[in-house]
Design a protein around this nucleic acid. Structure first.
Lengths: 192, 192
DNA sequence: GTCATTTTAAAATATTTGTTTTATAAAATG
DNA sequence: CATTTTATAAAACAAATATTTTAAAATGAC
C-alpha cells in the first residue's frame, strides 16, 4: 500500500548504467542521475542507499544484461566453433553500438575513483570472462583446433583485451576499420 | 628579485603528472597535488592558472618526456627494423614500469571528466603516434617487408592499441604474461 | 636599513556535490 | 472518511574541493 512509485527499479538501473557508462563514476553527479533517470533524489537514496550502491547495481546489470548474453555462446559451445562465433558476433555488434567502451574496463583506469566494492566487482568480471574464454580455448586445444604449443590462458588474456579494449581505444572515425580488422588478427593469433 | 621560489617548474609538472597518471584527472584533488608536489596552493594557481592548466602541462610533459623518447626510434628508422626494435623496447620496458596504463589512453574513457582542451590534446596524441607507426609500416610495405595486401593504417591502429592498451588492461598478475605474448602476436599480425 | 618585489603559509571564500530532512501528495485499509 | 503508509518535491544540510585573499617571509636594489 501507500503511494505507488512512478518508476521501475530495472528501468532506473538501466538508465543509470548508461550515464555511468558514458561519463564514468566520478564524473557522474547524483544530479546527472536524477535528471537522466527522472528518479527523485530521496527515492534514489531510499532504493539504493547511495550513489555507490546504484553504481554497484549498474555494474551488475551490465554484466547480466549486456555482457552475459554475448558470452552465452561460450557457455553453450566451449570450443573453437564457439570462440569463432563469439568473436564474429562481438565484432559486428560492436560496430553498431555507440562508442562508450566497456563499462567495466573503463573503470580499470579509475580504481581510485570508485569504491573498493566496485573495484572488486570489476576484477571479478575480468576474471569471469577471461576464464570463459580460456576454458573454450583449452577445449579447442584438446580438440586439436589450436596447436599444443599455445598457452590458452595467455591467448584468453589477449582475446579479452581485444574484445573489451578495442572499442575503448578506437575513436569514432577509426573504430569500424579497427574492429573489422580485429577478427582476422585475433583468429590468426589463435590459429597460427 | 623577490623571494626565491622553493620549487622548479619541471619537477612540479613531473610529480603532478605522476599523480594524474595514478588517479586520473577527476580523482586527483588540488590537495593531492599540493601534498605530493610540495607546491603551495597559491603558487600552483599563480604558475599554472588552475588545476586544468597544470593537467595540460602534465600531458605535454608525458608526451615529450615519457612517450617521445620511446618513439624516437621510429623517427630515425621509419621502417620494419624500426618497428621491430620499437616493439621490443616497449614490451621489455612495460614489464618493468609499474602498472598505471598510458596517461593519455587512461583519459579516453573519461572525456567528460576533462576539459575540452585536454580532450583535444589526447586526441592529437593518438593521431601523432598512430601516424608515426603508419608511416613506418608504409615504408616497410614499400620495402617488401610486409605484404602488399596489408593496410598500414589499420595495422598501425592495431599496434598502437596493443602498445598503449596492453598495460592498461593487464592486471598486476597477468600483465607480464600478457606482454611477453604480445610481441609475437603483433609481429605475426604484421608479417603474416 | 628601508623599499619594492615575489614567494609562501595559512586562512577564508565559493562552488560543487553527496546526503538528509520536511512537508505534501497519492494511494490502501478499516 | 480518518488513518496509515509510502513516494515525491523541494528545500536544507554537510562535506569535499576548487579558488582567492591576506599577511608574513625572503630576497635584491637603492
Amino acid at each position: 500500500m501507500g503511494r505507488p512509485r512512478t518508476y521501475t527499479r530495472d528501468a532506473v538501473v538501466e538508465k543509470a548504467m548508461g550515464v555511468f557508462w558514458q561519463n564514468g563514476y566520478k564524473a557522474t553527479s547524483v544530479s546527472d542521475i536524477v535528471r537522466e533517470t527522472g528518479l527523485n533524489t530521496a527515492s534514489m537514496y531510499k532504493e539504493f542507499g547511495d550513489k555507490n550502491g546504484l553504481f554497484l547495481e549498474a555494474l551488475e546489470y551490465y554484466r547480466g544484461n549486456v555482457i552475459g548474453p554475448r558470452y552465452q555462446i561460450l557457455v553453450d559451445n566451449p570450443n573453437m566453433a564457439g570462440v569463432e562465433t563469439f568473436l564474429r558476433n562481438v565484432m559486428t555488434g560492436a560496430a553498431k553500438t555507440e562508442y562508450k567502451g566497456c563499462l567495466m574496463m573503463n573503470h580499470l583506469a579509475q580504481k581510485h575513483a570508485i569504491s573498493s566494492d566496485a573495484a572488486i566487482q570489476v576484477g571479478a568480471f575480468c576474471d569471469e570472462i577471461e576464464s570463459l574464454v580460456k576454458n573454450a580455448l583449452s577445449n579447442a586445444q584438446s580438440d586439436g583446433d589450436i596447436g599444443p604449443d599455445k598457452d590458452p590462458a595467455q591467448l584468453a588474456s589477449f582475446v579479452v583485451f581485444c574484445v573489451h579494449g578495442a572499442v575503448l581505444y578506437g575513436r569514432h572515425d577509426t573504430k569500424k576499420a579497427l574492429i573489422s580488422n580485429f577478427y582476422d588478427v585475433i583468429m590468426r593469433a589463435l590459429r597460427n
